[in-house]
């Protein structure tokens, strides 16, 4: 709790990281209160041919799309998809990667070696390429995007936790708890994990931004949620045949993706400065 208060106090001091928090809060509020804030909540699925491709005005704030639906309302509902994909996919990656990294880091032997080699092989393929291959095989849906992303992102956490576990396992407090007869499980969960949690938090925050970008890319390629889902990447891909006349069509979803990814990156950078003094964004040791 004290740690939490410390982080909050530091974050408030760091204006840039605070901006990140505000952007993420905006995403969460947009996702939860989408029906409240949207001007045409029924526009996610309905279409109104006579309102097709209207420029932004006082009625349709961000213009309308090819179906005549209000883009502003669709963006708000799209926030739900973005946040679901990011939270579930990253959550699954953490749940897979962290235990693997802990076990491989704690024990020494062929099994640890094998676990790390497997995650190295996954890291040897560009994430977006592997995600495309998996999502294509499974078929386009939100669930499959989540599956594809979790299957490709877990090795980042396995690698990180492995390295961190190896680096602290000879610390006195770890050796002491082993000497006191603590079981390996207890040592890993009660003593190792809390001490490496800050790197996990930083990696997870930055990972959210990257995952949202990859998910949007899958949507853009037609591998995400099927139409008429208001997925932001899909909206941008739909807009392409109406350019350059309908310039507003791609603008709003693109800015939405940009702001959300920016939010997570800024918060991640800020948290790293606070939690991990070894790798500061800027070195302050002036001569």
């Amino acid at each position: 709790m004290e740690m939490f208060r410390f982080i909050v106090r530091k974050l408030v001091e760091d204006r840039v990281a605070l901006l990140g928090v505000i952007l993420i809060m905006a995403l969460i509020i947009a996702a939860i209160a989408a029906p409240v804030f949207s001007t045409f909540p029924e526009d996610v699925a309905d279409f109104h041919p006579k309102n097709r491709l209207l420029e932004p005005d006082s009625m349709f704030w961000f213009g309308t799309d090819r179906m005549g639906s209000d883009i502003y309302s669709r963006i708000l509902f799209g926030a739900r998809i973005t946040i679901t994909i990011a939270v579930v996919a990253i959550g699954a990656s953490v749940l897979i990667g962290v235990p693997i990294g802990l076990v491989a880091g704690y024990y020494h032997g062929w099994f640890s070696e094998m676990l790390m080699r497997v995650s190295d092989i996954f890291l040897a393929v560009p994430q977006i390429v592997l995600a495309i291959a998996i999502a294509q095989t499974l078929g386009p849906s939100i669930e499959n995007v989540i599956l594809a992303l979790s299957a490709t992102y877990w090795p980042f956490w396995a690698r990180l936790v492995y390295a961190e576990t190896r680096s602290i396992q000879n610390e006195v407090f770890v050796e002491a708890s082993i000497a006191l007869g603590a079981s390996p499980f207890r040592v890993m969960v009660m003593h190792v994990l809390p001490n490496i949690s800050s790197s996990i938090i930083v990696r997870t925050t930055i990972g959210m931004g990257g995952t949202i970008l990859t998910a949007a890319t899958l949507g853009f390629l037609g591998l995400g949620a099927p139409a008429p889902s208001p997925e932001w990447g899909r909206m941008i891909s739909e807009s392409r045949e109406f350019l350059p006349e309908a310039w507003w069509y791609a603008t709003a979803p693109g800015i939405a993706i940009f702001l959300v990814v920016m939010g997570f990156n800024l918060l991640g950078d800020g948290l790293r400065d606070i939690l991990d003094p070894r790798i500061r964004r800027s070195v302050h040791r002036d001569k």
Binding site: G209, L213, A216, T217, F220, G233, I236, S237, S239, R240, L243, P244, W247, A250, P253, G254, I257, F258, L259, V261, M262, N265, L266, D269
Partner: peptide, 22 residues
């Protein structure tokens, strides 16, 4: 920071709109 947050497919479309079409 902006460069790392921008979706490249969107950036590509913006560049097309500005430099090629406009």
């Amino acid at each position: 920071v902006s460069g790392l947050a921008i979706a490249s497919f969107w950036f590509a479309i913006l560049l097309q709109l500005l430099f090629a079409m406009d």
